[in-house]
Each structure stands twice: as structure tokens, then as C-alpha cells.
Design a protein around this nucleic acid. Structure first.
Length: 480
RNA sequence: GGUCCCAUCGUCUAGCGGUUAGGACACCAGGUUUUCAUCCUGGCAACCCGGGUUCGAUUCCCGGUGGGAUCACCA
């Protein structure tokens, strides 16, 4: 069987973590079976239309590396891939149902339906439209301004299988005369996805578990059309970090775009998402997209919802920053340099990035960790006088220590090995503790809270600049 | 309320009848020639409850309990 999967988002302008997993799973299924991954846009809700939303969506998917084989921007054998451009398809399918007597026009106004619903709720009952089904509904035609509803003919319990959740069932109470085509002439998700999946020959339906409660209706529709249902894959929810609810915008869930802007890597995002409810059975926890394609198995996907843990994402991001090829990291870092870093050269930036690669957790850390390499920092004597190690020394001792260091360093070749050696000698010659001597030197050249190991910092800074900074600090200290 | 789903450390999870219940994140302590980060070592910490089945249940069955989803002319 040729596998065809799809990601079918609504363009709401906000791509959240859960959306990405909804894209990742079908992507992996398609790739590991040498199948086709389709991107379809479900834009039938005109009330939620957001300009540019589609662009944001495509951009995010590209950034993540989840490329599609057919879709809205590149076309394919089943184009168009945007639902608003497929109206005639839905009408055609709807007419098949009307002909069979399995669909009818809903004569009620929205307010009247609301009233029926309120009555049901007042009686503590689930609202079922079919309980209020009109005897002789008006004829439905495209453009008539009335919703078209499905007519349930066999009210029965339905059984089905889900690749993740196993053998499931839907009670007869879930079967209802749901709306196929809205008053505005556009189809509902419930109807459109079945039409599209069928026409586009999708072999798998991947979506969140919230759709499980509509399965009875979908099964009835497949049946009405004489369609063989596709393989169902219902993914558990990504839960909010706090409380027990599914992750949503309202809980302050950040969009993928926000994570990207904060300096999270696509590798880390995907790795994090795939591990949220899946593992390969070993203790491996770092997976590249290729690894995932290789190892991913639906049978190993967790059935319970998994809580979103941002600390773990942060940890993964650090892991990925450290194991990324420096050229690739450099490319990702492009938009994250600080004011002075931006003014520098690529060559210089590369050198600095290599020096700090181990210390980055996000690309957003770059300015704080690199700016002093590009421009001489302002001398801040408080960092010296208030340092818990250096403050133990008298002012004269501090000045003297810097002077001795300058003399020593001026005389050596400027490379990390020679620097390491010289610093070690300095330690024995001055009989100072590493914490005292090294902290003083480090702060004297960087005036930064963190920096790479000392020889590296000196090496990247260069001999002239390092010595000049040491001297400037010494002078300032002497005058103070 | 109806329907459906789920249930191992704080979190993500391994486990598929017999284990000192394993790993990872987080946290705590210590170490790596300074700080921060990395890295290493150690520590803390879990089978929701009650019945069965069984020589033996975290594991299988049933019932509770708890949590979640859904009951739209949204997806």
C-alpha cells in the first residue's frame, strides 16, 4: 500500500506546539514508508480567517524541516489543496447524499437550534439534533442559505480500531444529524475532511484525541458513501505545564514562532515533541528528524496526555546547540548577534561562536556571552571589588597581580597551549589560588558574568587587545 | 448529566506475571586549575484504591476513584 498522509491545519495565525506534533506524526509515517506527505489548508471557517496565517504556517513548517510533497503552494495531482477552493467538490458529494435521502435542509434558525440545545442542557441531556428532526424539511440547494444536515439512518454502536488507542467504540448517543454544509455554503470540517481525504487518497487520518468523540458520525459518513475508512491515528494531547488541561493559547502557551525568536532550534523542538509521548524503547533521548523517521513507531506512542515541560525543552536545546556542526549553528545564529557582534565580520563571529558554543542554552544567550569579544567593555570595578574571591585581596595586591600577569603574558606566543602554560606558571609564581588569580584576569578583560575558559578567552581576544584591557583595568584599579 | 478515552518518581517515560521497579528532565550534594555553562559522581523520588485470576501481580479481569476529551452552522 502506498502511504499517503496529510497535515491539514486551519490558518488561525497561531502555530502552537500541539499543531507541530500533528504535522510531525504524519510526516514521519509518510517518510518511513516512502509515501507522500500532503499539506492541505482547512480554511472553511471564515469567522476565524486571519491574513498571512497561511504564510506563517508554511514558514514554520519549512523552518522545522517538515517538507511536504503535495500541497497548497506546490500543487499536486489533487489540487487545489485549499478547502475554500474546493467548494464544488463538497457540493457534488453532498448531492450524492441528498439523492440517497441521507441529507436534508435544516429549517431552523441558529437561534432556534440554540433554544433546542438549551432545553436539552436544562434537562441534563446531551443535545442531539436528530431528536428534533423536522418531518418534512425544505429542499436543500446550493446557495439556499440553509445548513445541510446528515441524516443518521442506523442508530447503533460503532466499533473501530485506532493505531495508537487500540480497539475503540462509539455509543449510539454520539450519532447525530450533524451539519455537512453551513449556511454560508462552505462545508464543516466533519464533512470536508472526509471528502478531501477520500479524493486525495489519504491512507491515514492523524489528529488529536478530541476527535474521538465524533468518530461515530464519521464512521456513519464513510458508510453512507460506501467508503472504506482510512487508518485512524488519534494522538494524545499535549497538556499544559500546570493544571490538567490540554495545552492552549489561553494557558500562555507560546507559539512556535515565539520559541524560534527566543533562540530555540528546530532540531530541539522536534526532538522534544516526538519524545512527548513516544520513545524508541531504549534510553536514547536525542533524535534527529532522520532518526525519528527511522525509529518512530505508532505502537510505542503513549495513550495518556503528556505535560509540556519547558525545562526539558531548554535542556534539549542546549544539547542540540552543542552537537550541531559549527557551520550550521553559525547559520542559525545569524539573527541573534548583539549590537557589536552585528558590526563585526563573519570570520570573527565564527571564531567567537566556537568559543561560546558549549555555554549556550538558546541562541538568545548569544549577546550576553559574546559582546565583550567585539568591543571593549566598560570597566566596572564593582565586579572586582565585590567578587567573593578577589575581594579577599588588598587593592595593592590586585594591582600587583595584574602587573605580574601582564609582564608574563607579554612575553609569550599567543595560543591556547602557551597561554595555559603561562597561566599555570603564574599560579605557582604568585602563590595565589586559581579562584583569585583567574577570576581577576577573567573579569579584567571581559567584565562579563560568564565567559569561556581563560586561555580560550585570551586567545580569541588577541594578544594586543587582551594586554590592553588588562592594563586599562590595572590603571583604573590603581587610581581608584 | 450522556458518551468516549486515560492512569508508574514533581515531569517525560521503560516495564508487556517473578526486577534491588530502570532511564531522562528538574531538584539537592560533591568533583573537574576561577565564575557561569558543560561534563562526571552520588542523592531524593513512583506502580491511584478495592476485589478477583494466579504459587506469585505494577503487569491480566472486574468495580470504584481520579483526570481528560466531547456534546457548534470551530476545527
Amino acid at each position: 500500500m502506498k502511504v499517503r498522509t496529510r497535515f491539514a491545519p486551519s490558518p488561525t495565525g497561531y502555530v502552537h506546539i500541539g499543531n507541530i506534533r500533528s504535522a510531525l506524526f504524519p510526516y514521519l509515517l509518510a517518510k518511513q514508508n516512502k509515501g507522500t506527505f500532503v499539506l492541505r489548508i482547512e480554511d472553511t471557517d471564515q469567522n476565524r480567517f486571519v491574513a498571512d496565517a497561511e504564510e506563517v504556517l508554511l514558514d514554520t513548517l519549512k523552518w522545522l524541516g517538515l517538507s511536504w510533497d503535495e500541497g497548497v503552494d506546490i500543487g499536486g495531482p489533487f489540487a487545489p489543496y485549499r478547502q475554500t477552493e474546493r467548494r464544488d467538490h463538497y457540493i457534488k458529494w453532498a448531492e450524492k447524499l441528498i439523492k440517497k435521502g441521507m441529507a436534508y435542509a435544516d429549517p431552523y434558525t441558529p437561534a432556534e437550534v440554540d433554544q433546542l440545545r438549551a432545553d436539552a442542557q436544562a434537562k441534563k441531556q446531551a443535545f442531539l439534533y436528530r431528536n428534533y428532526r423536522p418531518e418534512n424539511p425544505p429542499k436543500w440547494a446550493p446557495g439556499c442559505g440553509k445548513p445541510l444536515r446528515f441524516k443518521q439512518t442506523k442508530i447503533e454502536r460503532k466499533y473501530y480500531h485506532d493505531k495508537i488507542m487500540g480497539d475503540l467504540e462509539a455509543g449510539a448517543e454520539t450519532l447525530d444529524d450533524f451539519v455537512l454544509i453551513k449556511a454560508d455554503g462552505l462545508p464543516t470540517y466533519n464533512f470536508a475532511h472526509i471528502v478531501d481525504d477520500s479524493e486525495m487518497e489519504c491512507t491515514h487520518v492523524t489528529r488529536g484525541v478530541e476527535y474521538l468523540s465524533s468518530m461515530g458520525n464519521y464512521l456513519a459518513l464513510y458508510d453512507a458513501f460506501g467508503l472504506k475508512p482510512p487508518i485512524f491515528v488519534h494522538m494524545p494531547h499535549v497538556m499544559a505545564p500546570a493544571g490538567n488541561k490540554k495545552l492552549g493559547k489561553r494557558d500562555g502557551a507560546k507559539s512556535v514562532q515565539e520559541y524560534r525568536n527566543e533562540g530555540f532550534l528546530p532540531e530541539a523542538m522536534l526532538n522534544f515533541l516526538v519524545m512527548l509521548g513516544w520513545n524508541d524503547g531504549t534510553t536514547t533521548d536525542i533524535f534527529s528528524l532522520d532518526d525519528m523517521v527511522d525509529k518512530f513507531e505508532l505502537s510505542r506512542v503513549q495513550r495518556a496526555g503528556a505535560r509540556f515541560d519547558e525545562k526539558r525543552l531548554l535542556w534539549l536545546n542546549g544539547q542540540w546547540i552543542r552537537r550541531l556542526d559549527i557551520a550550521k549553528l553559525f547559520d542559525y545564529a545569524k539573527d541573534f548577534w548583539g549590537e557589536n557582534g552585528k558590526k563585526s565580520t563573519d570570520e570573527r563571529r565564527m571564531e567567537v561562536l566556537e568559543a561560546v558554543q558549549e555555554r549556550l542554552k538558546t541562541l538568545g544567550d548569544i549577546p550576553a556571552l559574546t559582546e565583550y569579544f567585539f568591543a571593549r567593555p566598560e570597566i566596572d570595578l564593582a565586579m572586582i571589588t565585590e567578587n567573593k574571591f578577589i575581594s579577599k585581596l588588598t587593592r595593592d595586591e590586585q594591582v600587583n597581580l595584574l602587573e605580574v600577569a601582564i609582564l608574563k603574558l607579554e612575553a609569550i606566543d599567543w595560543n591556547t597551549d602557551a597561554l595555559q602554560e603561562a597561566l599555570n606558571e603564574l599560579l605557582t609564581e604568585t602563590a595565589r589560588k586559581p579562584a583569585e588569580l583567574f577570576s581577576l584576569l577573567r573579569i579584567a578583560v571581559s567584565f562579563a558574568p560568564f565567559s569561556p575558559e581563560l586561555p580560550r578567552t585570551f586567545a580569541v581576544l588577541g594578544k594586543d587587545e587582551s594586554i590592553a584591557r588588562l592594563k586599562a583595568t590595572m590603571d583604573a584599579l590603581a587610581k581608584a
